[in-house]
Design a protein around this nucleic acid. Structure first.
Length: 498
RNA sequence: GGCGCCAUAGCCAAGUGGUAAGGCGACGGUCUGCAAAACCGUUAUUCACCGGUUCGAAUCCGGUUGGCGCCUCCA
């Protein structure tokens, strides 16, 4: 069948074919770096990651660009309406806009890594592309699509008949100012209520650049149009963002670039549904506003966040809870445990190529000759079932719930068969292949205290042999408090970090 | 005021006309010195509510309730 995505413009799931066979050009709306991104933001970035991983899983090369919005010009919602977010951050933190942007950009990249999100090739900063934005504005003015009004250059949406097609809005139906983000003066300047700013002359702004129209700052939508074109060309295959970006942001991106290139800007638009927390909208005042680093400080593993966020379909409203996060972690552990056990049963991780983590567990990997192994070929039916179901699920607009169900079904089947040797290796490799999309398995790093742990485990074995179970349980409990899980298997004790 | 989405077990969540996937949790069992892991079994006669269409509805239609998004610089 091949990959299918729900395209916002088409309003339905359609077959995905990149413009240039074998190469996917993808642009993702990235973070605004005036504060920490919250986990809802990362839902969108995880969608981008899943798309990237799926395309690569299917053998496509992906060129991926994600912007860093550091120009400001985002107003704060509700009470501070009208105040520029960067200005607010500057005022509150007493640092320069530049320092703040760089700080949160670094925090953002660290969060990406923590969540196992593969890095895009380029993270262009809006502030580095103001010259290109000015060029685009000049081109639009020249074509008569933009006009000057007071201290602003505005885009005239009446010159772009497609305006509204992406968001499926009829402009006549829109109520000017209903979003509460437009002031009366702004509306008065405009020929149409929907006209949006391309440049604002404001020499007092925290971030400002020279332009032919005066010192000021660029309109928000410009950066994506300009940077996408610069790094990926006139036509993108995929453009992603949160559902709130559909209108007006993405609608405007199309409007301002297509008349200049004369080509379709984006072939497939994908948007994530917003994430809720504890049953309602995330908000700082409700105390249900979560960040990756904040949850990590509470002791949660970021991969649990990844699991939780990707296991719900990206177009369905998802509800984040701490309880869900704990459950997500248990699921991750189950998958990791499976791979670890299979690789041990196989006599070590995937051969000389070293497909991944060497189990740190000390002691006795079972020799291949161990009794009770499933006969050669016995996992084959479960394996082909799994590859089939998993592949179909991810191809189908990233149906991750179904994909995970396939993973768990497969693991249960295989666990029942208790394979060893090559059979166990094939089972582990199947999950590792799936993990190229899931991104849940971790490289296990050998800890410095491994030798000490081995010594304690050996001491415990001795105690057990002498039927000193009090001492043996004491050692196990002690290890548990250090995050070490100890299991006694028929092949001897094994331990690992949880 | 306009446009749109969602509601499935204690929790998370698939399924969009053919008789309720999967995970977490809980309970019982096998295994174990005891555990852990793993496996087996139980945990929704029912899919927010009320009507309708149909041989058949969680799935389609109408209405109600609740939640969410956008309406022109919030993923």
């Amino acid at each position: 069948m091949g990959i299918r995505f729900q395209d916002t413009m088409a309003g339905k799931v359609i077959d995905f074919e990149p413009l240039e066979p074998g190469l996917v050009r993808m642009y993702n709306c990235g973070p605004t770096v005036y504060t920490y991104a919250h986990i809802g933001n990362f839902r969108a970035f995880l969608l981008a990651d899943l798309i990237r991983r799926l395309c690569e899983f299917r053998g496509l090369e992906v060129r991926q660009v994600m912007n860093i919005t550091d120009v400001g010009h985002m107003t704060v919602d509700t009470d501070d309406a009208g105040e520029d977010k960067m200005e607010k951050a500057v005022r509150q933190e007493g640092k320069s806009a530049f320092d703040i942007a760089r700080f949160y950009e670094a925090a953002f990249l660290a969060d990406l890594d923590a969540l196992g999100i593969q890095r895009a090739q380029v993270y262009p900063r809006a502030s580095d592309h103001v010259a290109e934005m000015i060029e685009l504005v000049a081109a639009l003015l020249e074509k008569g699509i933009a006009y000057q009004a007071g201290d602003a250059i505005l885009f005239d949406i009446s010159k772009y008949p497609e305006y509204g097609r992406l968001s499926h809005k009829r402009l006549e139906d829109l109520q000017a100012g209903a979003g509460g983000r437009l002031t009366g003066e702004m509306l008065d300047q405009k020929r149409n209520p929907g006209d949006f700013r391309l440049w604002k002359v404001d020499p007092a702004h925290v971030l400002q650049w020279d332009s032919p129209w005066g010192r000021g700052y660029p309109g928000w939508h410009l950066e994506c149009s300009v940077m996408a074109r610069k790094y990926l060309g006139d036509t993108l295959d995929i453009h992603t963002g949160g559902e709130d970006n559909i209108f007006p942001h993405h609608e405007s991106e199309r409007a301002q670039i297509e008349p200049v290139t004369g080509k379709p800007f984006v072939r497939y638009w994908l948007h994530t549904r917003h994430l809720m927390a504890e049953g309602t909208k995330m908000s700082k005042s409700l105390g249900n506003f979560y960040t990756v680093h904040g949850l990590m400080e509470e002791g949660f593993d970021p991969i649990a966040i990844r699991y939780l966020l990707i296991s719900t379909h990206y177009r369905a409203p998802a509800n984040f809870t701490k309880e869900g996060l704990k459950g997500a972690w248990e699921s991750v552990v189950r998958i990791r445990q499976f791979v670890r056990r299979m690789e041990e049963a196989a006599g070590g991780p995937g051969g000389a190529s070293g497909s991944g983590a060497a189990p740190t567990s000390g002691t006795a990997a079972a020799p291949e000759a161990a009794a009770g192994g499933a006969p050669e070929g016995s996992i084959a039916p479960a394996l082909s079932d799994f590859e089939q179901t998993f592949g179909e699920a991810v191809d189908d607009d990233l149906n991750m719930s179904k994909a995970f169900a396939a993973v768990f079904d497969f693991m249960r089947e295989v666990n029942r068969l208790e394979p060893t040797g090559g059979e166990a290796r094939r089972a582990a490799e199947a999950i590792r292949r799936a993990d190229r999309i899931l991104g849940l398995l971790a490289e296990e790093k050998a800890g410095e205290e491994d030798a000490a742990i081995d010594a304690l485990v050996a001491e415990r074995q001795a105690a057990r042999k002498g039927r000193d179970f009090a001492r043996s349980d004491q050692i196990r409990d002690e290890l548990a408090t250090r995050g070490i899980v100890l299991e006694d298997t028929p092949q001897g004790p094994r331990w690992y970090r949880k």
